[in-house]
Each structure stands twice: as C-alpha cells, then as structure tokens.
Amino acid sequence: MRKVGNMKHRSASDTISIIVFLIPAVLLFCVILIAPMVMSAYYSFFDWKGLGEAKFIGLSNYKELFTSELTPFPSALKNVFILAGLSVFLQLPISLGLALILGRGIKGERFFLSVNFIPVLISTVVIAMLWKIMYQPKGLFNNLLRITGILKEGDSNILFLADGPKGHLLGSVIAPMLWQYVGYHMLLMYAGVKNVSPELREAAMIDGATPWQVDRYIVIPSMKPVIKVCVIFSVTGSLKSYDLPALLAGMRSVTAAFPSTMLMNQMFKANRYGMGSAIAVLLILMCFAFALLINYIFREKDE
C-alpha cells in the first residue's frame, strides 16, 4: 500500500508502470524515427542498390552531392533557401500584418480569420492541380494578365511551368507554397495579438500612442514566442517541402529541384539507396541546425 502524501517514493511497481506506460510511445518513436535515422546515417556511406551487396565508399555520396553535375544538390539547396527566405521575410510579414489588423478588432473578425485559414486545410494535391490549371497558357493567370493589360495584344502567353534557365518553374512552385500557409501563421499570430491585455493597449492609447505605435512597441514585442514558433515552422517546413515541388515540377527538374524530390529521384528512379540516405541525413542535420539557430537568435533577444 502506498503511504499518504508519499508520492516521491519510488517502488519497484512504479518502475514497472513507468515502463508499461512508455512502451507504446517509445516503440513507435524508436522504430519509425530513431532507428531509421541511425540506419540512414549508416547507409549514407555505402553504394547500395537496395538489393544485393552494399559497397562501403566513405564520404563519396556526400562528395558527389556537392560536386557532380548529375545530382543537382547545390541547386536544390539554393532553391530551398530561397523558399525559406521568402517564407520568413515575405510570408510571415504578410501574416503578421493581417494578424495585427484583425487583432485591432474590426467587424467580421471571425469571418476573415476563417476564410484565410481555408487554404491550409485543402489537400496539397488539390492545390497543385488547381494551380497547374491556373498556370496554363490559357489559364486564369494569363487571362488575368490580358484583362489588366499587362500582356498586350501581340504578346505570347507566359509559360509558368516551363523548365530551364529562362522558365518560371521555380517561382511557380514557390508561389502556392507561400500562399497556402499565410493563413496558418496568421491564425497563430492572431492568437498572440489577442494575448496582449486590452488594459495595456488602453493605457498606451491614453498616453497618446497611435495604433501603429501600440503595435510596434507593445504588441509585437510581446508576440516573440509566437513569432519564434512561426519562424521555426516555416523554415523547417520549407526544408521538408515535397508535395508541391513533386506535383508541379516533377522529380527530374534541375532548376526547381528540392532536397526531397531529389531524394525520391535517387531512391526510386535511380535505385541509389545510399545516395538517398545521404540526402536524408543532410536534411535531418539542417532541420536540427536551423531549429537550434532560431531558438538561439530568439533567446538572445529575450534577455
């Protein structure tokens, strides 16, 4: 029997119950996340077709990623950093702006919040198909450009999905990704804005602060934790991005390559499991590195 108020006492049965309660989560976590990370790291040093013998080749996979013309990894890295950069410096400011406007209390607050969150819920496959059709030579975007007169009578249609150095493929892949998650970050930031106590705002207003000054000096500084979460989500989300690049640009595009599409291409088109693992390892490292970096940047400013 347990003694009253003696919760800190550890008994053998407690140890057993800790293990029992942790088993499902630990199993899932280790089998699907931890063990595969270790395996990926291991196979990244091999030349392996998935079947048959694996040949140890040291760091050759990594070296090839950065030097060979056949594996457009530098291009994929560049693209993913462009995406992450635009996500942090374009998408998040739009979200922040909209959240601040919403947070000031306007009519139809709930309506605007709900409407702008809809793209988040729509399947990326649907978004990709929809944008693909909008991008067509006679699709919505070209028609819009004609109506607004940006495209003149004699101009040819813009080929949004054309690959190659003169094509717009990369931009066309990035645009829907930025568009889709504005509403998501807006929702989180809106919650952050609403956390600022109305009294604090009132007090600042009585002291003669303009709404802009209230936002700048009171609301935004108090939103740092939310902004940090948004920055981490948008950077790691960019690194992981797969669906829209795969659906709009395909696996083989070089100009619009992303690490994930390259990984899939190496794994399932070229059957190079070792190379696929090397890309996975770099992705994991980048995700951790950026999460730590962002945490560090925000921590410094907190103190």
């Binding site: 395996m39 994930s260 996975a280 995700c287």
Partner: peptide
Amino acid sequence: QWKASKAVNRMFLLGITIPVQASLVP
C-alpha cells in the same frame, strides 16, 4: 516522478523537428 522523465520528454519533442524524409528509406 522519476529522474529521467524530463530527458525522455525532450527526446519525444525532438520528433517535431525530425523530417519525415529521414525515415523514408529505412
């Protein structure tokens, strides 16, 4: 209450950062 509970918790939370691509191949 047990000693390693915080460490185990932190380990689980790492899962948020791990990209799904990490486990695709294995």
